[in-house]
């Protein structure tokens, strides 16, 4: 899942980026409001974590612009302003959640996950595709009751496929939602990681879970009828 973090206080921006990446998110971050808007326009982020008081362009203006353009990314406001009016203003402008600084990092993670579930219309954090079971909350994967150890990159890819299970997911979608803007990965990195995932998940005695739909992309689970 790909996140955008717009926060001008450097220590917070750096630690959050680090923490979110270590949790398996692809994170783009910036400390400038105008730059943040540019990022948000050029990619379809799953969640945008947005500070309100920003140099360049303030957070509320960013939300207004994005919503006016019809962007669907979920926005989580992160701010030191805590009055009820501030919250109402933010939420009414189209933000999806609101957190007041300082906050617990685990709570931020939980809220981001909740927003992601909303993005992909799954209320249940326990996903099941055939006999594959994925717990989004603890980021663990089982097949037939046996846990499969995945690297964060592999997990991120599987999670994205899983929340869109039964749908054809294009390489571009995967690229946009799993990889960071300035990651050094080349375009065939998606195919490489699909290959890693297949080795760990698919079993010779079962029908493959990850299907290649020629010319369109990949799909987790059985092909739609």
């Amino acid at each position: 899942m790909r996140l955008l973090l717009v926060e001008d206080y450097r220590p917070l921006r750096e630690s959050l980026t680090k923490g979110l990446r270590e949790t398996g998110f692809a994170v783009d971050s910036t400390g400038d409001g105008a730059e943040g808007l540019w990022y948000a326009r050029s990619n379809d982020y799953d969640v945008i974590i947005l500070d309100l008081m920003l140099p360049g362009l303030d957070g509320l203006s960013i939300i207004k612009k994005l919503r006016a353009e019809g962007r669907q990314s979920h926005v989580l406001i992160l701010t030191a302003k805590d009055t009820v009016d501030d919250r109402i203003t933010g939420l009414d402008l189209g933000a999806d959640d609101y957190m007041v600084k300082p906050f617990a990092f685990q709570e931020l993670l939980a809220r981001v996950r909740a927003l992601l579930r909303r993005s992909y219309r799954t209320k249940n954090p326990l996903l099941e595709v055939g006999d594959l079971r994925i717990d989004l909350a603890v980021q663990r994967v089982w097949r037939d009751g046996a846990e499969i150890g995945l690297t964060p990159r592999e997990y991120a890819l599987l999670e994205y496929l899983a929340v869109r299970a039964g749908q054809v997911v294009s390489r571009t979608d995967i690229w946009e939602h799993v990889y960071e803007f300035n990651s050094s990965a080349s375009s065939n990195v998606v195919d490489v990681y699909i290959g890693y995932l297949r080795k760990k998940i698919d079993r010779p005695d079962r029908s493959p879970l990850i299907n290649t739909i020629r010319g369109r992309g990949y799909m987790l689970g059985a092909e739609p009828c």
Partner: peptide
């Protein structure tokens, strides 16, 4: 007072998140 609280919250958030993220592993 609100400004003071606001200005103290930001570095506190920085401290807290830096330490929490570091303690993740």
């Amino acid at each position: 007072t609100a400004d003071v609280a606001h200005e103290l919250r930001t570095p506190l958030a920085g401290l807290r998140s830096t330490m929490e993220v570091t303690l993740l592993r």
